[in-house]
């Protein structure tokens, strides 16, 4: 991986940087359960009066009342389970009812075009919600090369995130086993709506 100049990091405007941070937060919590250090950091989150801010504050509150073992249990009940978790966070599943379907093939084609390479030791198909959140973050920050234009981000979002992510986050919000992850669902659902509207403003 090529290190970029610090100036490039700073070169992403504040509100675009914030988008990347929210995608990064969602990616982190959906890829694996938070450990104690991450929970301490989450507990420090504060929120303003916006819906997004309130959801972040709710996550901080829940983080203060749980520990890594409980978070790990919850994560496994939600996404892994003994046979299967309560939710299946894959584009293919949400769009076709099956895993490894056409949405995954379509994503792989676009990943190739955008120069996004999958890590060799990955056990998950790339259309996992955490991977998609991470890809959006990377497109904004330029993790896979230069930061990509907003119109390209919009095209990727429209093709691979918009068709199903809001439904997934709404399911997470109302999942029986969700406690710490309930506000994560709210953050995700709210943020997807913000992204959609902000992209629409590009015209």
């Amino acid at each position: 991986m090529v290190l970029r100049e610090e100036g490039d990091v700073r070169g992403v405007p504040g509100e675009e940087r914030c988008r990347a941070d929210v995608y990064g937060l969602l990616a982190a919590l959906l890829a694996s359960p938070p450990d104690d250090g991450m929970l301490v950091s989450l507990a420090d989150l504060t929120g303003d009066e916006t819906v997004l801010g309130q959801a972040l504050a709710a996550l901080a509150e829940r983080a203060r009342r749980t520990d890594a073992a409980a978070a790990d249990d919850e994560y496994h009940r939600l996404f892994i389970g003994l046979t299967e978790g309560e939710l299946r966070p894959y584009a293919s599943f949400y769009l076709t009812g099956l895993l490894y379907e056409r949405p995954l093939a379509s994503l792989r084609r676009d990943m190739e075009i955008l120069g996004i390479v999958r890590a060799l030791d990955s056990a998950e198909p790339e259309d996992h919600i955490a991977a998609l959140m991470e890809m959006m973050q990377g497109l904004i920050l330029g993790t896979f090369g230069d930061p990509v234009p907003l119109q390209v981000q919009k095209a990727f979002f429209d093709a691979h995130v918009l068709p199903w992510a809001s439904r997934f986050f709404a399911d997470l919000e109302t999942a029986t086993d969700a406690a710490l992850y309930r506000p994560v669902g709210t953050i995700g659902r709210t943020f997807m709506a913000i992204e959609r509207e902000a992209f629409d403003l590009l015209g």
Binding site: G24, L45, G47, G138
Partner: peptide, 14 residues
């Protein structure tokens, strides 16, 4: 925003 950067994770070492 709300200190999200502190808990946001990135693949980018820079």
């Amino acid at each position: 925003t709300a200190g999200v950067a502190a808990v946001s994770l990135t693949l980018d070492p820079a």
